[in-house]
């Protein structure tokens, strides 16, 4: 069926998405990415610090 005969194509709205939405999305994606990096760093460092506190200088875990 040609597009100009197809009523479903004729009723398609012709609005355009506002410009600001792209900026909002990109900054939100940045925030999510930055937050996950901070969490990764924090959790990673926390685990490293915990492991270091339970081990002696040779890297062996000290049993208490």
């Amino acid at each position: 069926m040609p597009d100009n005969e197809n009523p479903f194509k004729l009723i398609e709205p012709n609005g355009q998405v506002p410009e600001n939405l792209k900026k909002a999305l990109v900054s939100e994606i940045d925030t999510i990415r930055n937050t996950s990096t901070v969490i990764e760093l924090f959790v990673g460092n926390f685990i490293n610090a915990l492991t270091a506190s339970f081990s002696n200088g040779n890297g062996e875990v000290v049993e208490k």
């Binding site: 009723i11 398609e12 709205p13 012709n14 609005g15 355009q16 998405v17 792209k22």
Partner: peptide, 11 residues
């Protein structure tokens, strides 16, 4: 794709 998606939502 943003305009396409927006129009689908509008409909």
């Amino acid at each position: 794709y943003s305009d396409k998606v927006y129009r689908k939502c509008l409909s």
